[in-house]
């Protein structure tokens, strides 16, 4: 019956590919487009948070910590509400991670605070006995890169239409405005911290990496 088709292998392969591709397209794309819309209440990161996010990536936090809570009772009991696709709408790149040497951090801002992170990043085994997490004391002396964070945010705004500067969303503005705002935000974080050199640096208008990182971790809710 299909002898005529079996005699035309190239034509057959092309038609087969088109059929499967079309079926895949109509099943995957509409739902994907719908699910990837930002969830109500999801906001883009501020410049300080983005700088912290870069520290998070630079120090490879995502190698051991996931940011994706699966819909199982055992996970939601420990980490909070399961993740929705729309919550990652402003994550570029996303940091789902694939390995949990440490706990999930999707909503760590709900149950850890600035002072805890400060103690923990300086020496994790101080607060979590037996932890395998290494120390990150260099974050207290290295300065965060606000300029790159601003460039990152601005690119997302211009290129991908991320709604900075719109009603109810974080303000970006010019570089000077954004830098001033980031330093204001840093002061709020530093006021909850105890490390004197970090406090001094923030008072002098500098932003140590740890401050940006804590701002980012606190924003994960």
């Amino acid at each position: 019956m299909f002898h005529w088709l079996e005699q035309k292998p190239f034509f057959f392969a092309v038609v087969l590919f088109l059929t499967v591709a079309f079926a895949g397209f109509v099943t995957i794309v509409p739902d994907f487009a719908k699910q990837s819309q930002p969830t109500v209440g999801t906001k883009p990161y501020t410049v300080l948070e983005l700088a912290g996010r870069q520290v998070y990536i630079k120090d490879s936090c995502n190698a051991c910590h996931s940011q994706l809570i699966r819909p199982f009772k055992s996970e939601t009991d420990r980490y909070g509400m399961y993740s929705l696709s729309g919550e990652y709408a402003y994550d570029r790149p996303f940091l789902w991670g694939s390995k949990r040497a440490g706990p999930d951090l999707m909503r760590v801002g709900n149950y850890r605070t600035t002072d805890w992170h400060e103690n923990h990043m300086m020496n994790p085994s101080d607060v979590v006995p037996g932890t395998v997490m290494p120390k990150y004391p260099h974050q207290f002396t290295n300065m965060a890169d606000l300029a790159t964070a601003y460039a990152n945010a601005n690119t997302q705004k211009e290129l991908f239409g991320v709604p900075y500067d719109t009603d109810g969303m974080p303000k970006l503005g010019s570089w000077a405005e954004a830098e001033a705002q980031a330093k204001e935000d840093a002061k709020l974080i530093a006021s909850d911290m105890k490390n004197q050199s970090v406090k001094d640096a923030v008072a002098n208008g500098q932003v140590p990496e740890i401050v940006a990182l804590i701002a980012y971790l606190n924003s994960l809710k």
């Binding site: 850890r112 805890w116 103690n119 101080d126 607060v127």
Partner: peptide
């Protein structure tokens, strides 16, 4: 031990004043 110990310590003594 699950929810509180990360800050208050397993002995609940606050890990040398950290909580």
């Amino acid at each position: 031990l699950v929810q509180c110990a990360p800050c208050h310590g397993v002995d609940a003594e606050g890990i040398n004043g950290k909580a």
